[in-house]
Design a protein around this nucleic acid. Structure first.
Lengths: 277, 277
DNA sequence: AACAAAACTTCCGTTTATCGGAAAACAAAG
DNA sequence: CTTTGTTTTCCGATAAACGGAAGTTTTGTT
């Protein structure tokens, strides 16, 4: 039998988690009606009995569900509670909702909350304003390389310098697919650091602009970002000034509300002198 | 999970997924600052090197993240995109947001969206109104036995009869911990089916009431529910009539918008016998 | 700043859970 | 009722996970 060498990155590394994740990814990538076992089998390239055993295990632990009507497999709702745990990091969760709501109401545009995860910014929440032209560039769970998009850029700009340098070097190729070269990005980073917020004016999607502000820890690193997206004509002149101001304030409010958790990790590091109030 | 026997030496028992899920559960159950490897080791009862290998695999595939500052483990943000996929089931996702928003704005109380998952109702979204007394009984990902709580009750009431009977028998013990005996619940189910919406008046948490309406497929089974929670004095008399009406309409609107997907699975089944309202 | 203790990572022989082919059970179409 | 396709079970061979112990790094304390 021919060896399927496509998924063979390294040898002997954690086949179990790899396969489970692969199967879930396959199911997640399918539409809202789920997949039959055969579909999973052929898309994964795994043996029939392996897939069967794997699916049984995944179901038993709630990672995937099986529709009782059709016997098709769907991503399990246990992911929802795990996601709730994932979002509770930094302690932002209890306050983020209110911040997004306020910004959304005040601007009528679409507002986003993103977290940094590795080399990416991930969209973890979104609120649509009621301005008739919607700019839904990011969906829940979407991720982009750091630096691409307003929120993502404000995250990158406020990483520690060595980290920033490493990221700039590492991800050049991925960023290129979005039409961002490193020199341009460096310029934008400097601008963002100086102003305290990021502005992305139509470079990514023409006609659409974005505004982003970082959620900072006390040591100045960003762990998350708030951002606003709108058609470019709504992010110019006086309105731009006004909104960027509002956005920055909201980001600071959010950061200070969560500051206990935000800094809890840092406090115990002796490299950090704590400024108690 | 129903596995009570934890000792090693069990045969052929999907150990891989079991352990991965166990580790993620442990991390999810910890606070916003995550856990060190040792914490995971002692809480899981697994060997040190096993946990190490497992964590490495989980990280590689994004199921958990490691805070670069503290090296502590957190639930990974990949869960967010998997959750997005989980919520896309039934095709409700694109419209649910707007429905919740409308209800929330109109009532000023807290509104919830729940899905059925196995024998439980799971809270998958929530919107807080601006009435000063908040009733946040359910958080994202929380689950309750079917029948407990307004949304959950409306889900149960609109399951196929055989299923309902089975659920009533199976979960009696779990429901008892909430103070619901089966006879009472049967009465409430009948009431709910008759009215088309469920009312939970202070039985679960005294002083708090809830109102729930099912999202129905064309065959009459509920796959999800919208619900409103408020202090009891806000769900009485004329306002109760008004809100229940609004809630039912919104649930119907939502169902009809998603109907293509909602019924896609059923269409291909020739066993489409019960077309009732 | 130096030391001790705790935590993390790697190594490697042993064990055992996983693999996948084949065939039985099951379901869907013709 | 037959045919075709899908799901489930079985089983021996083997690759992958296990875990004790040794080595390395981090963390907390004097």
């Amino acid at each position: 039998m021919p060896d399927s060498k496509e998924t063979k990155g390294r040898k002997g590394d954690h086949q179990n988690v790899a396969r489970a994740a692969q199967v879930i990814d396959i199911i997640a990538a399918s539409g809202p009606n789920g997949l039959r076992m055969t579909d999973v089998t052929e898309r994964s390239g795994l043996g029939g009995s392996t897939v069967h055993r794997l699916l049984a295990g995944l179901i038993e632990h709630g990672l995937i569900d099986q529709d009782p009507e059709t016997n098709r497999y769907l991503v399990g709702l246990k992911m929802v509670s795990w996601t709730a745990a994932a979002l509770s990091r930094y302690g932002l969760a209890p306050y983020a909702d209110a911040s997004l709501e306020r910004l959304c109401a005040a601007t009528s545009d679409t507002v986003y909350l993103s977290y940094r995860s590795g080399n990416d910014a991930v969209c973890v929440d979104r609120r649509e304003g009621n301005f008739p032209i919607k700019t839904l560039t990011l969906a829940l769970g979407d991720h982009r390389p750091l630096g691409i998009g307003a929120g993502s850029l404000s995250l990158l700009a406020f990483q520690p310098e060595d980290d920033r340098r490493r990221l700039l070097a590492e991800d050049a190729v991925r960023r290129a697919t979005y039409g961002f070269d490193t020199a341009y990005l460096e310029e934008k980073i400097a601008e963002t650091r100086e102003r305290g917020f990021s502005l992305n004016d139509g470079k990514l999607i023409s006609g659409m602009s974005g505004l982003g502000a970082p959620i900072l820890r006390r040591d100045g690193t960003a762990v998350a970002a708030l951002s606003i997206a709108a058609i470019s004509s709504r992010l110019e002149g006086e309105r731009l000034t006004e909104l960027s101001q509002m956005l920055r304030e909201e980001a600071q409010t959010l950061a200070s509300r969560a500051s206990d958790v935000l800094d809890a990790e840092l406090v115990k590091r002796h490299s950090f002198r704590k400024v108690q109030t």
